[in-house]
Amino acid sequence: MDIQQLLFTFANAEVAARYWPDIAMGMRITLELGAWVTVSGLILGVGLALLRALQWRPLTLLIVCFADIMRALPPLVVIIMFYFAFPYIELSMSAFTATWLALSLVLAAYAEESLWGGIRAVSKGQSEAARASGLSWWQCMTSVILPQASRIALPGLTNRVIAVAKNTALGSVVALSEILNNAQSASSNAGNPTPLVLGALAYLLIFIPVVLLGRWLEARMAWRR
């Protein structure tokens, strides 16, 4: 296969010109979904970690069960359950909602685990010093423990956010028209893999900066010790 042919197959300008708007639309959905998943997953994760910090046994048990199940199930299985199985019990949802909900719950489980690990890693003296000066449990949590815990949890947390946000591609399985889905159908319409290459580039365009941002945060947030 010579270079001309290779370019014609994988970087076909004509095909690219015809289908790039599809990829761009997919990018919008991917970005939107990724942003929603990140926000709702992190908020839920922080909430669960705080509830767990109350150390009320029945609640802790529930949270641990939730986190275990969401960490044990493949996210694709969760999405397929929400989209294909729940309509049978009168719980229909759109492809976007199913993917968003599934990935948010998965991210929440991981975020809760990382943050709880961080909370426990903050030395006991910190909460003692804070409580001794009259700060309430909540003030101590928000002003002293969580800022330190989130810094400890940060490397794991950014990895998780990236991994879960990448999984927005799983939405293609339930026909959500995000990048991968659009690229695949464009590529079978065109009989040429150029749209798939465009799709791959679109993912790199979105996630390479996120990965680099994660590395930068990690380096910047390293302990001032």
Binding site: N159, I162, K166, N167, T168, A169, L170, S172, I179, L180, G199, A200, Y203, L204, F207, I208, V210, V211
Partner: peptide, 9 residues
């Protein structure tokens, strides 16, 4: 590169 690339893609 592979951290940024979704495995399904």
């Amino acid at each position: 590169f592979f951290r940024a690339f979704p495995p399904l893609v």
